[in-house]
Design a protein around this nucleic acid. Structure first.
Lengths: 83, 83
DNA sequence: GCGCTGATTCGACGTATGCCAAAATAGATG
DNA sequence: CATCTATTTTGGCATACGTCGAATCAGCGC
């Protein structure tokens, strides 16, 4: 889990998904974190494999949301990034 | 910080220091984590640079202890590794 | 069925990272 | 001062990791 969040891009992606309205974020919403979109997808897949995110396809778009248990464990650790 | 704990060896080292008697551990106490001792020193230095550990030289031996603020932030996140 | 947009996978490249052996430093002890 | 143990630093190597471009897959609208 620490290894999954060790990469700055992944930490940013996780923080973005966690702080997005409704608790979920489409890939198209978070495609400007400084890397190309295939890389974003790659990192999201790693986060999903680590059990931190779950993905759900609704029509054309894919929505990611954080695993609730992880959110509970994080608690105030993420607060500086999720106001 | 997540990057510092991303490496399994560093996570193990941090956990060992955190769970050691007295809250501090000599380097000689934790020299069997699967890697050579210079590598242990290397990782301890990285953990110190990341602000997770502090080092204090007492005579011949060097004792490492965890930054209290980090311990408070971790809380129950480390409990499975620090009984 | 045919294009169109969005998302993922594949292949390859460059960089970063962890690892060890050997050498160098720090302090204690004779 | 010489020496010995404990720790850190250095140099170099192998591997893993992140990144991108191009190609591929998945639905949707015409």
């Amino acid at each position: 889990m620490f290894k999954a969040l060790g990469d700055p891009v992944r930490l940013r992606l996780f923080s973005l998904v966690a702080s997005h309205a409704g608790g979920e974020a489409c890939v198209c919403d978070i495609s400007d974190v400084g890397v190309s979109q295939p890389t974003v997808s790659h990192h999201l897949k790693k986060l999903k494999e680590a059990g931190l995110l779950t993905s759900e396809r609704r029509g054309t778009w894919v929505y990611y949301r954080v695993e609730p248990a992880v959110l509970a464990s994080m608690g105030h650790l993420l607060t500086p990034a999720a106001p």
